[in-house]
Design a protein around this nucleic acid. Structure first.
Lengths: 214, 214, 214, 214
DNA sequence: AATGAATGAGTCTTCATTCAT
DNA sequence: CATGAATGAAGACTCATTCAT
């Protein structure tokens, strides 16, 4: 991992990205996501990303994004927004904690089913991108954190309202998030389950694991 | 230019490793595990491994293991055996499926707590080691497969004996495995839970998710 | 470990070489030819070529040519063109087969005398450059083939017109080509013969070996 | 090419090879010849030779031969003796220069046809083996010299006796040697000529090129 | 907004040879 | 007669980044 020195020498890098990201930027981000998803983080060199993006020189990437880390930052944000757009609204309209939990699991699984490359890429990046000191740039659980952070309030609310039993909310949130990850494998590797089947199984497990014992 | 042709090139690789792996081999494997766990797979170069092992030249590694892939193979086997030694016997003495499931979760979590570097390293290797065609050498779920394969028979037996309800055994196995992974995060990242607390939480969840509804 | 996948790895190899090969490319090709001629193919490492070319890093070579094989391809083409430019026209103006044969031998020998390094380098490359399967990249007779292919039509025409006797045209072409190679030794190793003396001897031999017996 | 330092340290290398070369030595020499013939000089590493010889360690090679150069020396001698045994006697019984020339060409071609690997290996070694100063260890024409040195006396005798016309005997010897080399290509690369056909063609050419004009 | 040229550090692997026993 | 262990040098090639225009 290279020591990032300030790019003092460069004279003409676009100082502030325009509000509407340029087509070039999107093109590169898309190519990077595909490349990372397919070949893995370590193999996703500027050269291979450029090749997939159909641009002649890697210089365009560093021109638009500066360093590789900055490109990754943008990718992570892009993917997170993609998921949020699809998930948040479906949860908002729920009134009970159990309903919100169910809705969130369902929406999450549907997003995963729809954007497999995004899932893979986010995973690769969060597990491999490291700073110059060797530590993970996005944290080992970066891909998890967003989901966990969104799940925990639901769980706490369920406990407060009496819908859910007592348990460690953070670990339960992690477990549900992990169960969703498990469903990814079940959806992608034969013998495959459908999205709906996974939703059925996971929501059942979540319900059993969280509800007050009768 | 490289005439790829097995590793015939290595002058005199020890043809048959002695039954008790040499001290040097163990030393290198241990250093490699530590390096991978701390810095990640991509950063675990021969140079860094050699440095940690306290040997003068990277040549010693390729001398003993041939290629990096072969070193990784040995590490994976070593780690798997380490886990098996600790887990298998504790499960064997159980008579009920629920008991076996409980014992396995507990033993697994204790192994994880005891050998964190092994866990990390196995994870890094299985997620990053790739063959020349770009595919994962140990499969995306390699670190999972062993556990899943061990869990599923327990679940099926539980369904057969009537202890467990009906569910997709493979997905349930994956989910339990993932719940254990989730506990890893909970054990390692503050605010930390103790091993016993994790055992308590996870076994409860597993019991609730699998038992016949009353 | 190496993910062999074309030379996608090179960050930004110049996509399309400008029509007039850049000065740098020519400089490197020239240095490579000299190095190969003097030290032999196996010793002509990027490091030694770079040193002779007076460039700071071997990276410049792989930047401009990608791989060593591609550099060799360029050298071979360059040398072949050099020879063709000098030889073809002198043969074209001949009207008889005997005349053409004589002209070709003469032109070939003059080219050899003038570009000894090119001759040596072409020889070294064709005899040593090998593909990943171990086979010769340019064929054992690559340096010969061009000459043989040029000679054979002349010989066949001579037989057709009745100037020449019956013989195996391919073997005769090979023999004449080899006789020219023999003259190389005679020109370069003491006691030396002059180019003209060699022309005289070889054309005499060729004439005697091909003409219709009286 | 490594600077050969005296092997002062080694305590037990066989000081003088026994008169009858040991079976091990022959085995290694044979494996080396095959390896060089098939893969080329540069690829004929100790490791690959050992592999083909079926011995476990390259140490055996350096044990028996000291350095690679010494192994090559032995190979060259071995091959030269092989050829001499087969050729010399057939020439000796000739009484005329033309007869001797004919006999030598024939015997040479038959040896080539019979020991193709020896031919290839000798060629590879003479063209590639270099000393620490970069110069060819056996000379560019090493494989040629023996034949040339044997041919020239025949040619001079033929000129003295009046059988042959005036020509540069050294160049003629080289040319005939080269014509034989040409026949190698003709014998080994399709469309193939038989040995006898090659003998016929080459001896005809040699006769036409050398005899007194009528 | 884009591009060509250049670069130094780093990767794994291969090499013949030497030190021990 | 044989072998296991170790080694330093060198190989081609890949990497993200910077300098120019």
């Amino acid at each position: 991992m290279r020591v990032t020195r300030g790019n003092t020498g460069d004279t003409s890098e676009p100082a502030q990205r325009s509000l509407a990201a340029s087509a070039r930027r999107s093109q590169i981000v898309a190519a990077a996501i595909e490349t990372i998803a397919e070949l893995g983080y370590a193999q996703a060199s500027f050269a291979r990303i450029a090749e997939r993006a159909g641009i002649s020189s890697t210089r365009l990437i560093s021109y638009h994004f500066g360093t590789k880390d900055e490109l990754m930052d943008e990718i992570v944000v892009e993917i997170a927004q993609s998921a949020d757009r699809m998930i948040a609204e479906r949860v908002a309209e729920q009134t009970t904690a159990a309903g919100a939990l169910h809705a969130r699991i369902k929406a999450q699984l549907h997003w995963i089913a729809r954007y497999p490359a995004h899932v893979q890429a986010l995973y690769e990046i969060s597990m491999n991108a490291r700073g110059s000191d060797g530590s993970l740039r996005y944290g080992m659980a970066a891909s998890a954190r967003a989901n966990v952070d969104a799940l925990e309030p639901i769980l706490r609310e369920g406990q407060r309202s009496g819908e859910f039993r007592a348990f460690d909310t953070q670990l339960m949130a992690l477990t549900i998030k992990s169960a969703i990850d498990a469903a990814i494998v079940r959806m992608w590797q034969p013998p495959r389950l459908s999205v709906e089947e996974c939703v059925q199984e996971i929501t059942t497990i979540a319900a059993l694991a969280t509800r007050r014992s009768s």
